[in-house]
Design a protein around this nucleic acid. Structure first.
Lengths: 239, 239
DNA sequence: GCAAGGTAACCTGTCAGACATCATACATGG
DNA sequence: CCATGTATGATGTCTGACAGGTTACCTTGC
């Protein structure tokens, strides 16, 4: 059996995307520059506008270009870390859908962020965090989506206090993922919320500028999250 | 001057892309599954084929989907993520400052995985890890890409020992990202490699089934990584 | 002369329909 | 039973059109 590697003929879209990418790589166009308009590119590249637009769309998806309706297409600034988080998002999406495994990833990030927050947070930021805590504790009677949102917001705020927007961005992706999974599989109430004591303990530890204590509190909180997920998993297994 | 945040109304393409992404994230579709054909999706989503195709194209660009002409559109597997990052590699020149943030994410995961590996790894897996270590230490004379690859493989193996494929998957993406950035910005030799002592210490700690020690070793290793990145950052600032 | 406002030109976003090309399954003939 | 041709449905590309947003210029009033 001879190994025949299929002749992969690159599609026109890939061809055009590569050509445009080369424009940026070669330095002919740099951050902020405007590309020629679509009609002009169509004439120059001798392809249909459909193909050109799909190529531009892909380059925009990976963060290389930015399209502004009505004005034109521009070379994006490399600072857009959205591409990094988007990749993480993809990695999450195509991995297994075991919520417990995703929760473990969340644990990695939350404990680390709690520690960092205790190290770096300013007084103003801590006051802001307290405001988030207040909003969360007073959301008891609201619908489940609101309660979850305020809960997520509190954790997201701590992540932001770490000063690392990659970490907070990834945590956001994880939360979106968890929310999407939960919303689909089970909106049963009755599963116990994490006790606010632990949230309070996290906040107090950060306020006391005690990294070790903050990390322990975050870990304890994730223990309750794991326990809840296992509870739900067991329950759905019974059905 | 009041800050007016423009009401960015998401385009139809973004809307559709998000909807399709949710299908995968929610678990309704998993790796290898085929999406409905374009005509079917057009009828269901009530959008034109143009919009649908652009949305699919973007998701393919970030490695979430794979389109096979004549057969259909499928949910991609994790390996295609690597190709997606390779696509970004040359295009995205990430600053060393941002690279430090990504490295912090790597630290979160590596320390946690080292701990878990020390808890869960079987004898056979540890033997496999030793084989990886051997391969890495004997790659001294090889080109820099090979050295880095074996280094990454060693860390990836530890992540796999954690038994959580979400963690190892995300770490894979991070490594690709870091590698892409390094390969672009500076392939200068002269920057010191992480001493193999630390790698050995990580492995020994795992073999000794000592989670605390493994985590400490991983953290120490990441300290050297941070130091290297800061070294490069300082050097590039001098230029 | 200058500034405010309106308008026209240009740009991207979306749509509909058509045809080409590729992959697969099935029927047919050897 | 195997090989081949074909029908079918999938994605790839093209064309033309219109809608909606941006920008620059030009007019108008001061």
């Amino acid at each position: 059996m001879i190994q025949i590697n299929p002749v992969s003929q690159p599609s026109l879209v890939d061809e055009v995307a590569g050509r445009l990418r080369q424009l940026v790589e070669s330095g002919a166009l740099t951050t902020g520059d405007r590309l020629p308009s679509e009609p002009q590119l169509v004439k120059r590249l001798k392809v249909s506008r459909t193909v050109l637009r799909e190529a531009i769309g892909r380059l925009e998806a990976i963060g290389l270009l930015t399209v502004r309706r009505g004005s034109g297409t521009f070379v994006a600034n490399g600072e857009s870390l959205t591409t990094a988080t988007q990749l993480i998002r993809s990695a999450l999406a195509i991995s297994t859908h075991d919520l417990l495994k995703v929760a473990e990833l969340r644990r990695c990030i939350e404990t680390h962020c709690a520690r960092r927050a205790a190290q770096f947070a300013t007084d103003a930021e801590i006051a802001d965090l307290q405001a988030h805590y207040q909003r969360m504790t007073t959301s008891a009677g609201l619908p489940i989506e609101s309660v979850m949102k305020y809960d997520f917001d509190f954790h997201k705020k701590i992540a932001q206090l770490s000063g690392n927007d990659v970490l907070s961005g990834v945590l956001q992706v994880i939360q979106d993922f968890i929310y999407a999974s939960i919303a689909q599989t089970m909106e049963q109430p009755g599963l116990p919320q994490a006790p606010h004591d632990l949230h309070l303990e996290m906040m107090e530890a950060i306020r006391a500028r005690d990294p070790e204590r903050a990390e322990r509190a975050a870990a304890a909180h994730m223990d309750t999250v794991d326990a809840r997920l296992k509870f739900v998993a067991k329950k759905s297994a019974q059905d």
